[in-house]
């Protein structure tokens, strides 16, 4: 059962709203990571509004599915998704990265109910998710719950990821479901120039994982991937989700220079116009800033 009854069209609209939130909060913050956050909006929309079993008004609900964000710099998309899902007011997004905010530049679990982990330094999320999945499988034995983890592709350079991948493969952690944001960029350039990851599918398969390759900007394919992953109970699943960095804002798309940069006010205005009109395809009475 999906968590909400939003239709596919409504989910796409929600993803677009989350992208608007991201642009607006990064503008207010004056710094932050634009490209990855925008590129992940469809995956996070699918997770928070369809795939995951959770209660925004009861973040520690014992029967919830859990989500570990491994590439913590993309947390604006998680904050925006949580706000849209009802964990807190959307207006609080404007406090991102500001002194005293619960929305730290990189996520801190104790600051904000609903976060499962503290992250930022890369490569640490998969292990934590794997441990949680191990607990569900072998110790607490709660087969109705699932553990999701979102990783960047650049962070697959980290050895810790492969230690965890080996662990999850050994213990056949069927309740562990990973999404890799395969957007092909990292700070110094394209992933294949900086440190080649391919053949990425073969690598994960060799570690004992069920591997899917999906369009990470297509909500239907994300939901289908999660369904398939949940049905496979004898090993962990990872979806290599091909995404467009900066998705939805044409001047940010595919450009690695937008990895760690926030838009200025002119750029944000332009970005919001594009998002609110779906790049000019629709006219929207709220278009423009």
């Amino acid at each position: 059962m999906p968590r909400t009854n939003l239709t596919l069209i409504q989910l796409e609209e929600k993803a677009n709203k989350i992208r608007e939130d991201i642009v607006s909060m990064l503008l207010a913050a004056g710094s932050g990571h634009s490209a990855g956050s925008l590129g992940l909006a469809d995956i996070f929309t699918a997770l928070y509004f369809n795939i995951m079993n959770l209660k925004p008004d009861e973040p520690e609900w014992p029967d919830r599915d859990v989500l570990f964000l491994s590439n913590g710099h993309c947390v604006p998309v998680q904050y925006a998704s949580m706000a849209e899902a009802g964990y807190f007011e959307v207006s609080e997004l404007q406090t991102l990265r500001k002194y005293g905010s619960r929305l730290q530049g990189h996520p801190e679990r104790e600051r904000l109910p609903g976060l499962e982990n503290t992250s930022g330094p890369l490569g640490c999320g998969l292990s934590q998710a794997a441990a949680y999945a191990y607990d569900l499988e072998y110790i607490d034995k709660q087969p109705h719950r699932f553990v999701y983890v979102v990783m960047g592709d650049g962070e697959l350079d980290e050895g810790n990821i492969w230690e965890a991948a080996m662990f999850a493969g050994k213990y056949k952690l069927g309740h562990l479901i990973g999404f890799i944001d395969r957007n092909n960029i990292q700070i110094d350039g394209s992933t294949e120039d900086v440190m080649p990851l391919e053949d990425l599918k073969a690598k994960w398969e060799a570690f004992g994982w069920h591997v899917l390759e999906i369009d990470g900007n297509n909500i239907e394919s994300i939901i289908n991937a999660a369904s398939e992953a949940r049905a496979i109970t004898n090993r962990p699943t990872v979806a290599i989700a091909h995404t467009i960095p900066g998705k939805g804002v044409d001047f940010m798309e595919y450009d690695y220079k937008w990895h760690g940069v926030a838009p200025n006010s002119d750029q944000a205005k332009l970005a919001l116009e594009k998002l609110r009109t779906l790049d000019g395809k629709i006219t929207h009475e709220g278009a423009g800033v």
Partner: peptide, 11 residues
């Protein structure tokens, strides 16, 4: 890091 994950699961 596994330890941190087990702790999150209440262990």
């Amino acid at each position: 890091t596994l330890g941190a994950g087990f702790a999150r699961a209440g262990k």
